[in-house]
Design a protein around this nucleic acid. Sequence first.
DNA 1: GACAAAACAGGACAACCGGTCTGTTTTAAA
DNA 2: TTTAAAACAGACCGGTTGTCCTGTTTTGTC
Lengths: 228, 228
Amino acid sequence: MSAENKSPATRRHKKRTNDPEGMRKRVLDVAEASFQARGYHASSIGDLMAAAGVTGGALHHHFPTKKALALAVIEERVAAAVEETWIAPMQAAGSAREGVRTVFEAVATELERQGFVRGCQLNNLAHELSLADPDFRIALAGIFAAWRQAIADKVGADQQAGGEQGTDAQRFAALAVATYSGAMSMAKTAQDAGVLRDCLNALEQGASPTSRSGAKRRRRVLLAPRSL
Amino acid sequence: MSAENKSPATRRHKKRTNDPEGMRKRVLDVAEASFQARGYHASSIGDLMAAAGVTGGALHHHFPTKKALALAVIEERVAAAVEETWIAPMQAAGSAREGVRTVFEAVATELERQGFVRGCQLNNLAHELSLADPDFRIALAGIFAAWRQAIADKVGADQQAGGEQGTDAQRFAALAVATYSGAMSMAKTAQDAGVLRDCLNALEQGASPTSRSGAKRRRRVLLAPRSL
DNA sequence: GACAAAACAGGACAACCGGTCTGTTTTAAA
DNA sequence: TTTAAAACAGACCGGTTGTCCTGTTTTGTC
């Protein structure tokens, strides 16, 4: 099966192209996709090798253990995904609330377009790996913290611009992240992205009672009387 | 305790107490705990057998496959956990918002008492198994639906009592469940239940923007949701 | 008591997992 | 050119996985 490359310029057939960066990227691509679709434990390195078209020697050269591979996926790919879909749009938004709405709607639209819901990469791995290994947990917690901080920073910017005076930035950020994460969890389980819009609407409508127009809006709630 | 020597023969037999219900319960107990602590794929049936003190034959008699065992855990234990910690307290609460607050605080207090966060059983399994098998996904989706419905029903009851007139029951329920699920996800990853209180406070403070004057509330999402 | 079915014991097994090992090729510095 | 290290190939191995199988004991029914 040789005698394929008989170009006179090439004296010997180099059937191997050393491309460490490219090979590493291919492995990370496949691992990222498989971890998302099947999870960490359900993804065998044999499957990953076959899907990426790499040999065991090559894979173990770049990632000595499966844990190292997962850690690389978390630190490089999952963090980048959160950066791309949340942090950057949030910084580019006109306000924190506008940014949250934009991301929710963009994700919902994208999910409806592609027809099925794979879930949030960060939450998927966080649930499976947080208790499995402290290194995993710390890496994942860092991404959550950066995500929340980006939203809180935007609220802080809004406040310096005169808005959001009654808002606690950290709490608002926690609520936004929690709502998104939980909504994605339900969307994945129900295979229906509609719950994302439900949550966004409920969030924007305000969670405080009777915060509708017409009457004086009373915030700060705390239910008044004990009915019943 | 009664008759050890029921047989006149001197050959010793292992005294075996046939207790199908008890053995089944023991297996479910161990499986529920292990799935919660380590997840489905990371829990081997060998470990479960050892922890429950049952043999392979016994386990296989009650649960032919690992999938059947997990399905039983989901339908019997996870559903019961949601019923106990959410649905029943919600029905017993004075109002929907009061019920949500009560549950959030109760869970946060309990987590702080025991010192670490194992996460929400439903969400843990939902993330790992929703895409793994349609049977898993449907069973888990049903629990999510019942959970949301219990909250929505309470909002409906509040509305019939004169309150919550401006609230969309379904959306409110989705938001409550999403917030709890997402907050638990962060709490598990950070091993800190404080985010539960942050989210609850943000929820009660109201997420509606302060500066928005004209409440242009839209009733329905326009995008026609594609099936799936 | 007879007897079929349920309940349980425990070994066996093939497939698979993650990791290691040795060897070969490519690269780049000296 | 020499040479050491990096990059890659591919076989190999011990342990584990989930499941199946045969056999034994208990239970319920007549």
